[in-house]
Design a protein around this nucleic acid. Structure first.
Length: 118
RNA sequence: AGGAGUGGGCGCAUGGUCGCUGUCCGCCUUCGGGCGGGCAGAGGAAAGUCCGAACACCGCAGGGCAAGGUGGUUCGUAACACGAACUGGGGGCAACCCUAAGGAAAGUGCCACAGAAAAUAUACCGCCGGGCAACCGGUAAGGGUGAAAAGGCGAGGUAAGAGCUCACCGCCUUCAUGGUGACAUGGAGGGCAUGGCAAACCCCACCUGGUGCAAGACCAAAUAGGGAAACGUUUGAGGGCGGCUCGUCCGAGGUUUCCGGGUAGGUUGCUAGAGGCGCCGGGCGACCGGCGUCCCAGUUAAAUGAUCAUGGCCCGCUUCGGCGGGUACAGAAUUCGGCUUAUAGCCCACUCCUUUUU
RNA sequence: GGCCCCAUCGUCUAGUGGCCUAGGACACUGGCCUCUCACGCCGGUAACAGGGGUUCGAGUCCCCUUGGGGUCA
């Protein structure tokens, strides 16, 4: 264990789980992307990615992989015990995990202190 | 040297660190899985879904109709709308390229405007003959219209003209030869009859049952409902008619157990195949046969990634030490055979044209 | 992933291969009317998704591409 592994069980993969996050989560909007967080009972945090409006499969997969890579490297810095869904719209095209890191950290500043308000 | 044509091929490489998916081996296990190691992990188009098949389920005695598709010939192929070779037509100086290319004397329909007339024919300006003229007769050479005008061109002929006659070309009929065939070549005859459009209806020949891996098969929560049995119930729960009592009709809820269908979810179908590579043989070729050898993704809110270094290739700057930038199109989803479309930068082979030199 | 459908002015739509230089309504805009606005009247701008082919001639027929939309759990 190196603390940087990302197995598939830590990804949100069921439609109703996405529905729950969309319905009851807290949403922060950014430039062509937004972050929705929902506190849960489990110990670690989980990630979901939703991409809309990007038609070429190569670009879509690349955005997904870069976001996942960012999440793998910076997981400890993110609030624990939450399901977070990263939503991407047309026009958002990062080239490296650093850009995603900046974008997400500005969103987290918008949320404020990672308050575990239930 | 420059320009052009055809066919084929490549489409970044290597290593370190951190990750993802599958599989094999070993160990641990609370039997859910976890850890360590080995191996494998996007394409020439994976794309568009335009055709053809395999496979699966449903339907089906046989035949016909309808609907749709294909359309030179002969081969190739599991099959095709694909490919090869050849034929006809068109384009190009040429290499070579393009070609839905059967039938218009089976029928129906359309051919705007213009024009006399758009297909049974007919005669506007004309030409010629007759006639004082009105007009009558003969013509279709010429003009004009149009995308297209009833063979073309030349000569003879004539009142003027006309396949009326003749030569050449085209067309039709027929014969011979060559070819598996499309067709080609040649001879004889006819004397012009047969305008175009079938990616208009149609006729002819051939082909096609429908749905598609979200096909189909198996396991199977929760909730609702179905069936069966037992207990319970005729001392009648509940409901309908009726304003209500009475009445009358329908009638077994309820509890327990079992069964079958089946949703979420899971497993399977799921990758060894009309397979790749090499050699030999057959064929002009597409392709086929034989032998040897190899195992080469299998995901499911979607794995194949991030970063660092070194080196290729291209472009720009250069103080010739280097520096900076770029490295296309694009991501498997049941599997194959084609077609079409996108594609930076290259490589190889053959061929043609122009110019120069020998 | 499979299977289908559609595309005409800014918007909603007509349009038997030739009367199409593509019609109508709303919108926009110029003028008239009015003290001004509205209404009304007279005009104007503005479109066949792109590329090939068939045809004398294509918005219409055929093929390819592009962009939308539907459906199957």
């Amino acid at each position: 264990m190196h603390g940087q592994a990302l197995p598939k069980s830590d990804l949100i993969s069921r439609p109703w789980e996405y529905e729950a996050v969309y319905r009851r989560g807290k949403r922060v909007r950014g430039n062509n992307c937004s972050l929705i967080c929902l506190p849960t009972d489990r110990e670690n945090n989980r990630l979901g990615i939703s991409i809309h409006g990007i038609k070429k499969a190569v670009k879509r997969n690349r955005i997904k992989r870069i976001i996942r890579e960012f999440y793998r490297l910076n997981r400890a810095a993110l609030p624990a015990a939450t399901d977070m869904v990263f939503t991407v719209r047309e026009g958002f095209s990062p080239n490296s995990p650093e850009e995603v890191k900046q974008a997400i950290f500005t969103l987290l500043k918008k949320i404020g202190s990672p308050s575990p308000s239930r």
